[in-house]
Nucleic acid binder design. Structure first.
Length: 193
DNA sequence: GCTAGGCAGGAACCCCTCCTCCCCT
């Protein structure tokens, strides 16, 4: 069983994977229930369309930031190299991030590989319960865990740092083994490096 | 805190469909 994990976060031009593009991705390597210092990935990506003023106000990412950046698919090829044989972790990854990664691969026409992935919402549900009405958004989870965000929210670098802290806490609460055996997984598509 | 789209998962019911909620940018 793999024991290396990559926690990642995407910022995009909107919510629909078919219509919108990723514009920023950040990731950190995670091992033995903690982030690995110095092992990180970050890139901007240039979307097909200009970034709307709403997304700029939401994420702080401007059209100037992505000018000259590689295409989303080119960024994912590099990201896939960084991921290597690790298992991915993202918050709401099953329903959001994974869809963007798959759609980006399809648009780029690249060969894909399947990467096992954990949605950190499942870790939160395992710790805090899955009753109707119990919410698991990242802001709520970090508040429950007593984490004070001193990062820039809705910037992938800040969010992934925060998610790394949250996953560390959840990991400890659940007393997970190094390989997180027994935690539900799904598949995420990445380009073949 | 408003907006957008789509879906996982529960409810009701009996295995497939419908509906509601949640979460991401």
């Amino acid at each position: 069983m793999r024991r290396d994990f990559v926690i990642y976060d995407l910022e995009t031009t909107g919510l629909s994977p078919d219509e919108e593009d990723l514009i920023q991705i950040a990731a950190i390597r995670f091992r033995d229930g903690k982030p690995v210092t110095g092992e990180s990935f970050f890139s901007y990506a240039k979307p097909r369309r200009a970034i709307s003023s709403f997304i700029t106000s939401y994420t702080g990412i401007t059209n100037g930031d992505v000018r000259g950046a590689p295409s989303p698919c080119e960024v994912l090829v590099e990201f896939s190299r960084f991921v290597g044989g690790s298992t991915l972790i993202a918050h709401n990854g099953l329903r959001f991030d994974s869809k963007f990664l798959a759609a980006t691969c399809v648009r780029g026409g690249v060969a894909r590989r399947e990467v096992p992935s954990i949605d950190s919402i499942w870790l939160s549900k395992a710790v805090f319960g899955n009753q109707r009405g119990t919410r698991h958004g990242l802001d709520i989870v970090i508040e429950r865990l007593g984490i004070r965000p001193d990062v820039r929210r809705h910037d992938a670098r800040g969010d992934v740092e925060l998610l790394g802290l949250a996953v560390s806490h959840l990991w400890r609460h659940l007393n997970l083994p190094h390989d997180a055996a027994g935690v539900r997984r799904h598949e995420t598509h990445l380009p073949k490096p």
